[in-house]
Design a protein around this nucleic acid. Structure first.
Lengths: 354, 354
DNA sequence: ACCGAATGTGGCATCGATGCCACATTTCGG
DNA sequence: CCGAAATGTGGCATCGATGCCACATTCGGT
């Protein structure tokens, strides 16, 4: 009775405990003395049922402990109340907050969140997309790793909202922080403090997040008539150790009076390096970050940041997707920019005198 | 054609874009020249299919872009590969890490995580349980808010693993940190540094988490022959501001040379108060916390903590639940204790001299 | 050679809820 | 008063995949 080994790795489960048979609409119908069709209409669906019948059916359902079967409903009605959410790392507070905002809005609308952590890996992302197609979800919110994922979903009739960034030129909805404006405001703040040698720690510029932040950094220099030394734009990979190493090299090779870190992970590395060198913040060097996560207000001195309102970003994603699913929107794609807000704390101060 | 207002608040969605008809097993059967039964067996289920037929069916499925429908599969097979996960606050790094570990293990086993944030609210928790029953999930991992939720799920034939804590006396599986041993080790550490006046900041002791941490605190005093002043056990509500106020009162009313905070949220409040008072850590007062989240190693001085290995806790929950679902375990309930580990950093030092 | 077990295929009913529509009754507007 | 629209009910097919089993063939052991 053992199948060929080829099947061994697939998810196999025993049915939920066998002795538990759940009441169906047939049972409710018998209990209430109406037809199964009437039960369905009285409990859930569009269509007519008199107030008296509704009350009778509801009482009967409650009496016998009836619980709808989403699988049956989804199959017949050809849709689902599950929404896919693809993020890059649940352990990063940015994504955790994003997911929190999304989940909150979905729950309020009686949708369920199916959360997948693709680890920023293109293969995992596509695997997740396939799974969500199999689940027949009507919509997906994705922090895209490749342009392929949103496209495949859309080609299969699934509504997609890209969160935080878009890749390439898609034709779908996007919700993101106003990266350029936020980075510009932060850089303005430092320039107003007298800084003309500002390092930028950044991991990527091919995604709209990094690109927007870099653009804001550049624009602030331009608008304030401050020359930008291209060597102060320091590229690093997306982990705190690499960022720390890059900060070390930046400080060793260049005169810098302030550092902007393009996200919370890089900020960790930069801070660790400054502490290691026993540099006094902000007296000797100012440090600021794009994103605001809890530790940034707990360190001493607390970090000046740009708050992306990440939870609100998540809520906005969910609201947009739900409106799209309900057909409340015109076909034209929508780009929602959530304003970012500068939060000045103790880590930024006047540029040291030469 | 408008239904009565009573239906207006329910989740209503348009089918995924209408013009997209998905290929079914009937289509694959035609393409491969076999029966639909054979398609099903060749692609997914237990049962026999020859290697030649398997290859032919797979090629046909790929050619026409066939994607399984989980709803149909779940309905017929009376189970599902979705797993419910109920947590209390996705914005708290503890729960985010827990969910991350769970998701990782589920994904590897080709299960999907349906994540609900119940906000530690009993009503929300029960609502989530109802939804998961409707989805016919075979298992749920829950950080329980009430004893009712695990019970109702189990009565309906759903396997349950309680994470982090158990309420009352349930008969289900539990995975938790070894709270007592961890708290004891932390308290031992402070006593070994000469502290005899150790404050404990704690928000609850009715759950096994708080109760275990308190028990460890007491046991360390007893075993080291240090008298425990009951007034140094300071109760507070579960938010950083309340913890801060409670810390203030504790310091105003009692001589204390060290503070243990029972979780990461309370530690935030305590740290803020110590900083406000400009107390020198650890020279004037030591601070330690149960739980280890990123900010704790980033503040100055870095906090001495007990690392719950929260991601591993999550993995362990998922592995246990999957084993239960697969019928790999004897009926007897299982309690898994994940060892906690003391991490000594700069925030704890010798007790100040009288 | 014979028999039982294993392998393999196809037919058909099944899972539980809803879409669709025929039919009946009531309400509303001209 | 009459016709159209709205309200309400029940019957039956449908959604897409799999469980179950009858039947056929092959393989291994005696």
């Amino acid at each position: 009775m053992s199948p060929r080994g080829q099947q061994a790795a697939r998810a196999v489960s025993q049915p939920a405990q066998q002795s538990v048979r759940r009441p169906t609409v047939q049972d409710v119908a018998r209990e209430a003395g109406v037809s199964p069709s009437t039960v369905s209409r009285a409990l859930h669906t569009r269509g007519y049922a008199s107030p008296d019948v509704r009350a009778r059916v509801r009482a009967a359902a409650e009496r016998i402990g009836y619980v709808l079967d989403h699988n049956a409903r989804n199959l017949r009605s050809r849709t689902s109340t599950s929404i896919g959410v693809l993020i890059s790392d649940l352990r990063n507070p940015f994504y955790a907050d994003l997911a929190a905002g999304i989940e909150e809005e979905l729950r309020a609308a009686e949708y369920q969140m199916v959360l997948v952590n693709d680890n920023g890996d293109p293969a995992e992302e596509m695997r997740a997309a396939e799974t969500l197609l199999a689940m027949r979800v009507p919509g997906v919110i994705v922090t895209p790793v490749t342009a392929k994922c949103p496209r495949v979903l859309q080609e299969n009739g699934v509504h997609v909202v890209c969160a935080d960034r878009e890749l390439g030129r898609s034709n779908g909805d996007v919700v993101m922080s106003d990266n350029k404006a936020g980075a510009r405001e932060l850089t303005d703040h430092l320039i107003a403090l007298g800084h003309t040698r500002i390092g930028l720690l950044i991991d990527e510029t091919k995604w709209s997040t990094g690109a927007g932040r870099l653009a804001g950094f550049r624009a602030a220099h331009l608008d304030n008539f401050v020359d930008l030394d291209e060597d102060l734009i320091a590229y690093t990979s997306f982990d705190a150790d690499a960022a720390r190493e890059t900060t070390r090299k930046l400080l060793n090779e260049h005169e810098v009076t302030a550092i902007i870190s393009a996200n919370n992970v890089l900020a960790q590395g930069a801070l660790a390096e400054l502490k290691d060198r026993r540099l006094r913040i902000p007296r000797q060097i100012s440090l600021a970050a794009y994103d605001d996560v809890p530790w940034m207000s707990l360190v001493q001195p607390a970090l000046t940041t740009v708050d992306q309102h990440t939870v609100e970003l998540g809520r906005s994603c969910a609201r947009l997707l739900l409106a799209r699913i309900r057909g409340d929107l015109p076909a034209r794609r929508r780009i929602v920019r959530v304003p970012a807000r500068l939060i000045v704390r103790g880590s930024t101060g006047p540029a040291p005198r030469g």
